[in-house]
Design a protein around this nucleic acid. Structure first.
Lengths: 351, 351
DNA sequence: GTGAAAGCGCTAACAG
DNA sequence: CTGTTAGCGCTTTCAC
């Protein structure tokens, strides 16, 4: 209403205008303690009229709680992480806390800096997917913290939430088996990454449990990008004695790259080669055929992360590890295995 | 080092431990004012030893600046907005301020709530893409504000940064003309949206300037989604006397949907129908053929938004409008127009 | 019920 | 150059 170009009204202004003391005004405004209905109403009215808004800085300074939590992820522009952020955002706003999102761009130094900023901003806690291998910083963060993603293994003492890779890998392998693809070739990530280890181990375990010799599966490495998936697929086709009829990629982008490579070599997906991805990125719907994939519960991870963190902040639960199930997203890139190999395939890739 | 399970040390602890007064410690810690090299060093050493970290709440409460700025966008899971956020994040961390990202999910009520939270958190300013048509809230935000996206037009008095739609549309149309597609069909957004108006107007103006009668262009509406693009394209083909040989979609998702529709009708892109999108989302690279598109400067918008806001906060500049140029991203979905229409095309779509 | 008073941790005059 | 003092706006005893 009024064009008060000056500073925003403080609790003192309200108290004065309502003819009560600072503390009575505070009590009315924070809806706490004993206060007469009359006084409370008068204060509230004045507050509304003057456009009062609680100063959260002062509030937090005094109460020791900021009502803010931090989220540190590797890349906000990556659809998977964006989805995690969205889930966290939803849950945070439902819980009435503000979420501070930080993107580390896979840079450990930047991650450390973000963590520092968060602590200095006195957030009540943080959700982090650590990119730094040396994660000392986390140990001494000194605030409630929840880990997301694969790095949880390195910090068994911290609460964490992630996707159940073992279950997800099994889901994919089971489905491939149903399509009679018993020995899919694998497109995995680079050696160093923990995610790679977990994927490979899950595949290994599944094989052992299903009477398949893990050593018989062809494997190619990639960098989790479309380009490297393309290259890996090319190497795979050119390097194998027999044309692979099915490929299981550890990540959707590589799967998409593989699909491109397949087409470029004059082969067809899924008729000649079936392709299964892992992630569930939206872009997988735009390829031709659409990419079938094992989708990670990205949004759920964000939601659960916030819930877990709240538990930690409120001291309700000491420590907990949550594993969310993956789900199968079937589009067009998978076909049943043919018993007889079409003649024209025999000639392909013998470059 | 030390396992102080207690509270973090304050400036008073430092002062005491260093044997100086609170203010001397403050001066050393904030690197301001006159202070002897000796005292400064002693304080700094103690601070480091005790693991001192400035309490930004108190700092902000006192100094009136929080060093935080807000970013309110419609959807963090949308690749375009994620990219904007990433740009803003980069620039913010370069400028040494923290960025609070909020996603309104196209919900005006939620947007209003986010704006309130930001003001209550005493951010120094905010960057907003308003979804609410009734944007009273913005006017009385009371803090420096920068608008991003198309809504800038409704608030000529506020600073803003956006993409140059007119230039972008022209870029696309120029290129199509070069390929001898003089009358592309248009896939535009829903009537209400400002973005739709701007796109249509830009096309109109280009036509007038290039001797094309705007009324001769076929137009279909969509909702900016893959599905609606698919439907619009189907309507377009079934509804036109002559098969359109080129389509210009106002958004990439609709273009992708159109591509799907084209293929389903037994036509080929780009041989039979050329398709041009508008946005530049990463998913456009996964389609077959890859989607040629006019890319909006998403990251640049985020970067420029932060720069503009900083100017506003520091009172350096009163008001400014920045328009960033779009760029052409050529992939496989565009081909030169054929003079003669292949026979088989004449039969298609006469459902 | 209500008010007075004492801080939360820090900055910014102001004297020394 | 350094220490003292007075708050920033709010919550929270503690008396009355």
């Amino acid at each position: 209403m009024s064009e008060w170009r000056g500073r925003q009204p403080t609790i003192i202004d309200i108290a004065k205008a309502a003819g009560v003391s600072k503390s009575t005004a505070a009590r009315a405004l924070s809806d706490s303690g004993k206060i007469s209905a009359d006084a409370r109403e008068r204060v509230l009215n004045v507050a509304k009229r003057l456009g009062y808004e609680r100063n959260y800085l002062a509030h937090s300074l005094r109460s020791g709680r900021t009502g803010m939590i931090g989220l540190v992820i590797p890349d906000i522009a990556n659809p998977f992480w964006a989805e995690v952020a969205r889930g966290a955002q939803d849950e945070a706003s439902k819980a009435g806390v503000s979420l501070l999102i930080f993107s580390s761009d896979w840079n450990p130094a930047r991650e450390a800096s973000h963590l520092r900023v968060l602590r200095q901003a006195r957030v009540d806690g943080a959700i982090v997917n650590p990119v730094a291998d040396n994660v000392d910083g986390l140990g001494r963060f000194g605030l409630p913290i929840v880990l997301i993603g694969s790095s949880a293994e390195r910090f068994p003492e911290l609460s964490s939430v992630g996707s159940d890779i073992t279950q997800g890998v099994g889901l994919g392998l089971d489905h491939l088996e149903k399509l009679r693809h018993h020995q899919p070739a694998l497109l995995v990530g680079p050696k160093g990454r923990l995610a790679r280890v977990r994927f490979s181990r899950a595949v290994h375990d599944w094989c052992v449990g299903h009477g398949v010799d893990p050593a018989t599966l062809a494997v190619q490495e990639g960098e989790y990008t479309v380009e490297s998936g393309h290259e890996a697929m090319t190497r795979l086709i050119e390097g194998s004695r027999e044309l692979p009829r099915c490929v299981y990629a550890a990540n959707d982008l590589m799967a998409l790259g593989a699909m491109l490579a397949v087409r470029e070599m004059g082969l067809r997906c899924p008729d000649d080669i079936s392709i299964l991805g892992f992630d569930g990125i939206p872009g997988g719907a735009f390829s031709d055929p659409g990419l079938s994939t094992v989708a990670k519960p990205a949004r759920g991870i964000g939601i659960e992360g916030v819930k877990l963190l709240k538990e930690g902040i409120e001291g309700r639960v000491e420590h907990r590890r949550v594993l969310l199930p993956c789900s199968l997203k079937l589009r067009g890139s998978l076909a049943e295995a043919q018993d007889i190999m079409p003649d024209r395939l025999l000639a392909v890739g013998r470059g």
